[in-house]
Design a protein around this nucleic acid. Structure first.
Lengths: 232, 232
DNA sequence: CATAGTTTCATACAATTGTTTGAAATGCAA
DNA sequence: TTGCATTTCAAACAATTGTATGAAACTATG
């Protein structure tokens, strides 16, 4: 058991290589070469390639979840058990965004790895992601406490949209950068977070858009959207 | 040249298999078996496996883009060259969502294929996606015309968020379904579209969230968000 | 030292995969 | 039919990959 060293070398090398080159074209042989260990060491210490990837992902992912929950608890404590909705959303999307965006030189290997994991979606990781729901449920509960007058469906949708904006902004940060010709500064993480929080809160509190002058699509509005618009 | 038949057989079989089982575990041998043609036919007709996948994707993707642009043109025509922002967003996210969501029995192979393409993100497809920016630029232009008083950065962010919500809702529809214990009905495509459009329009027009009672995070607001709030 | 347990290593294995080849079949024009 | 081009086919190729093996090296305990 004294040789966690090899184990650690493999984990480090694997994370760095996956972060740099993606899962698709990094083989076990690349990893052990970078780690300076023997090929068989991976299977000896991890059982299989997939289990190695899974371990990398759960480690990072648990860390993020811890951060999220810590922020949530703090917000709830401050509000006397009922956090304000803005703080809840911030706790939900902040840690991930802070981890994955920001200037390149500050961006850790871990963050780049998680971006890859998000973009390429390899099987062992997909399996793990399915268990994330219990974690999200805690945020749904907090939201329900914070906005007791909103119905569940709208809250779930709001939660979904918050995550969507955060996630996809990370995934496609390059596209937004190109599209805006650099005008959207994705390294200004606080700005990104506040933008997402602002929009999400509106979605969650259900504030209605000003009715536009004309409904130009013959389709009309399909959703009865006038339910409980009470303020927090 | 009279034998486009084999070509078509391969395309059909490939799309169906990829849609059903994902890119990861469908081999050329699976495809030619399902198509009832010879293994070498793929390389003869398409050059390589990647080019086959690329052709599948561009076909479907061009179709979606056409639909989007048609809706956009229609909206602009109706508004006399300046479409209303809601219609623009609807044109942007509607076709994709209609294609990819909806009850399973109505969901075409093509749609399921595009979902896979979105989830698994295989290299040949990733290369193509990078050229999508020019297409999006047209929507950015339309938005600028529709909301001349908003600054570009906010518009780009709004565009990004609209796409993010649409895309991620498709990718993670199962998660939202589980999280909400079925309460969020992802088969009601019109409802989904309207939800996304509503939130996106608010993000684009920059309507401010009601200031919450307390700012519980010591962080404060990092973004000056009070710029031009004029209505369309 | 000796022994048992752990860890490392070189090497081989087995399976899969996309691709190529060269001949056979097919279609079509002269 | 003859001749030429296109298309199909079975078979083999070449390379890669994750995994397994069994012996050697190492470590720590008795």
């Amino acid at each position: 058991m004294p040789s966690d060293r090899t184990r650690a070398l493999i984990l480090d090398a694997a994370e760095r290589l996956y972060a740099d080159r993606g899962f698709a074209d990094v083989t076990l042989r690349d990893i052990v070469a970078a780690a300076g260990v023997n090929l068989a060491a991976v299977n000896y210490h991890f059982g299989s390639k997939d289990e190695l990837i899974a371990e990398l992902f759960v480690t990072r992912s648990l860390a993020t979840n811890r951060e999220r929950l810590a922020e949530l608890k703090a917000a709830e404590a401050q509000g006397g058990g009922r956090a304000n909705i803005e703080a809840i959303v911030r706790a939900l999307v902040g840690p991930t965004l802070r981890g994955c965006l920001g200037p390149d030189n500050e961006r850790s290997t871990a963050a780049r790895f998680m971006i890859r994991a998000s973009i390429e979606s390899v099987p062992p990781i997909r399996r793990i992601k399915n268990r994330e729901i219990d974690h999200l449920r805690k945020f749904a509960t907090a939201m329900r406490r914070s906005l007791p007058d909103r119905n569940d469906v709208d809250l779930y949708w709001g939660l979904n949209f918050a995550l969507a904006m955060a996630h996809q902004t990370i995934r496609d940060s390059e596209r937004l950068s190109k599209l805006s010709e650099g005008k959207c500064d994705l390294d200004d993480v606080t700005d990104v977070i506040e933008r997402i929080v602002t929009v999400s809160v509106i979605a969650l509190t259900g504030r209605e858009a000003e009715p536009t002058a004309l409904d130009s699509t013959g389709l009309g509005r399909a959703v009865p959207r006038a339910e409980d618009l009470r303020r927090v």
